[in-house]
């Protein structure tokens, strides 16, 4: 992943490998998150997203490689690391019998930096009923409580594991809003995993794509998008020349036209088509969803020949 030399890494993971009963969950994963960045972890179920996040929280010890959070080992120094993290999982594990007010009071005692005024502001903004018990709240309201608890101690890093999963669009907007406001108003960094690639495309600066524990692709979102293309081309001549482009993922023959998914620098690709006497009928960059599908089907994104 590219990062400027002066930027301060708050998460630094190097060559992290993890196996469960001989099954590889993470394989030589490297990533770095700098202060103020919004970093996305994408991948299908079982890709290793939650395992990676659990290493960041110090819940798993690195079997090989290293995990450093705020220049500390999260397994050896949990208070120093966890006091700087706000964590929200897909299903926040909250005591069902507590009321909203009680869970705030209870959680505040764990964090010296807890800001009750900020918590109250968020509770009001999310219109959460203070006297209601957790078990009486809807899934969306529980997710909102989770968001308040994850932020009220003003953490440096917000760590969200599939926060939008199964939630309605209004609650998903609250979560995106919390991510964006946290970065703008608090200078917070955010790491979030998601399979909703449209959301990731909207808010991330950097991302890592995981597939079966391997990193398929990582880097600045803008660079990743700018390097993946879908061309529809047509040969100028009546005979088909062999098409041989590096980094082609998929070539689909559509009668006189050919649809090509490929990676590379746009001007170079255009020149290649020109040399092949192929007219470009249409071009667009691939969506993150399309890139992920293409890369996971063909991790090498290797030479394609037609």
């Amino acid at each position: 992943m590219s990062s400027s030399a002066s930027a301060e890494a708050i998460v630094s993971i190097k060559n992290l490998t993890r196996t469960f009963n001989d099954k590889i969950a993470l394989n030589k994963v490297n990533l770095e998150v700098n202060r103020g960045q919004i970093f996305g972890i994408v991948g299908e179920n079982g890709a290793g997203k939650t395992t990676l996040i659990k290493h960041m929280l110090g819940l798993y010890k690195a079997q090989s490689g290293s995990v450093v959070m705020f220049n500390k080992n999260p397994v050896l120094d949990p208070p120093a690391v966890l006091s700087n993290i706000g964590y929200l999982s897909e299903e926040p594990d909250l005591p069902a019998w507590m009321t909203v007010s009680e869970i705030l009071y209870y959680s505040a005692s764990f964090y010296p930096k807890w800001d009750q005024q900020y918590a109250d502001k968020l509770i009001d903004a999310f219109e959460l009923p203070r006297s209601k018990k957790i078990k009486e709240l809807s899934k969306g309201q529980r997710a909102r409580i989770g968001l308040v608890l994850a932020q009220a101690h003003r953490p440096e890093l917000l760590l969200l594991d599939e926060p939008s999963s199964g939630l309605d669009p209004i609650v998903r907007k609250d979560i995106l809003g919390a991510i964006i406001c946290g970065v703008m108003e608090e200078g917070r960094s955010v790491v979030f995993s998601s399979h909703l690639l449209e959301e990731v495309e909207r808010v991330c600066d950097y991302l890592v794509m995981l597939h079966k524990g391997h990193i398929l692709l990582s880097g600045a979102l803008d660079d990743i998008i700018a390097d993946h293309h879908i061309f529809t081309v047509k040969y100028a001549g009546p005979t088909k020349s062999p098409l041989n482009l590096e980094n082609c993922h998929k070539i689909t023959n559509l009668g006189p036209e050919i649809r090509i998914e490929c990676a590379g620098e746009i001007e170079t690709l255009k020149q290649n088509f020109c040399q092949l006497s192929a007219d470009i009928i249409h071009h667009r960059t691939m969506t993150l969803d399309e890139i992920f599908t293409a890369r996971s089907e063909d991790p090498q994104f290797s030479l394609g020949i037609m």
Binding site: E198, R202, R284, T285, M286, T287
Partner: peptide, 11 residues
Amino acid sequence: QLVQGNGIPVY
């Protein structure tokens, strides 16, 4: 108004 999934980057 942003349109998602049309292959045009958000910016």
